[in-house]
Simulated assay, not measured.
Amino acid sequence: MTAPFLSLAQIRNRLILTARWVLRDHQPTPDGHCPICRTADCPVAAAARDVLRAATEVHLWDTANQPAECDRDDTSSPG
């Protein structure tokens, strides 16, 4: 399937799977260096961790947890 036909959940799942795949390939060796990038702090692994963190913490399509908008006509609250 191509991207225009994917739901938000499918796109999120593909991002998670891709980030896990990248982390598996860029897993540091016992000396702490990435076997692909050959650096101690692999920027690719850091980006994949950021993607995983963002994909698992944020649910953009979940509107149940959104803060309610305040009513501008409500004069009962001070301020």
Rank of each mutant, 00 (worst) to 15 (best):
A55L: 04
A3T: 14
T39F: 00
V44G: 00
P28F: 01
G79K: 06
F5A: 06
R72N: 11
G32C: 07
C70S: 12
C70A: 13
D31Y: 00
L6C: 14
T29D: 04
A55T: 13
R20K: 12
A46G: 10
T2A: 10
I36Y: 08
P43L: 03
H59R: 13
D31F: 03
S77W: 04
G32H: 02
D73I: 00
P4T: 14
L8S: 06
L8K: 02
R24Y: 08
T75H: 11
I36S: 03
D74V: 03
H33R: 09
R38I: 06
C37W: 02
R24V: 07
A48I: 11
A47H: 04
A9P: 00
W21H: 14
E57V: 09
S77E: 14
S76R: 15
A3C: 01
P28A: 05
R53V: 01
A3M: 11
C70R: 10
A45W: 01
W61D: 14
A68S: 10
E69H: 11
A46C: 07
R72D: 11
A40M: 08
F5R: 04
A9H: 07
T56A: 01
S77H: 09
H33C: 08
N65C: 05
L17M: 04
G32E: 11
D62G: 03
S76I: 11
H59P: 00
L60F: 14
V22E: 03
P30G: 06
D71K: 02
S7T: 15
A64C: 05
R38H: 15
C42R: 03
G79E: 06
N13G: 04
S76C: 08
P4N: 08
D71C: 10
D50K: 15
V44H: 00
G79Q: 12
A55S: 15
A9E: 12
C37M: 12
P43R: 07
D31R: 06
A9C: 04
T75Q: 14
L23S: 04
Q66T: 12
W61C: 02
S7I: 05
R49Q: 14
A55Q: 13
H26S: 10
E69S: 12
L52K: 02
A55C: 14
D62F: 00
T75G: 05
I36K: 11
Q10L: 03
A19K: 01
L15S: 12
R24F: 06
A64L: 14
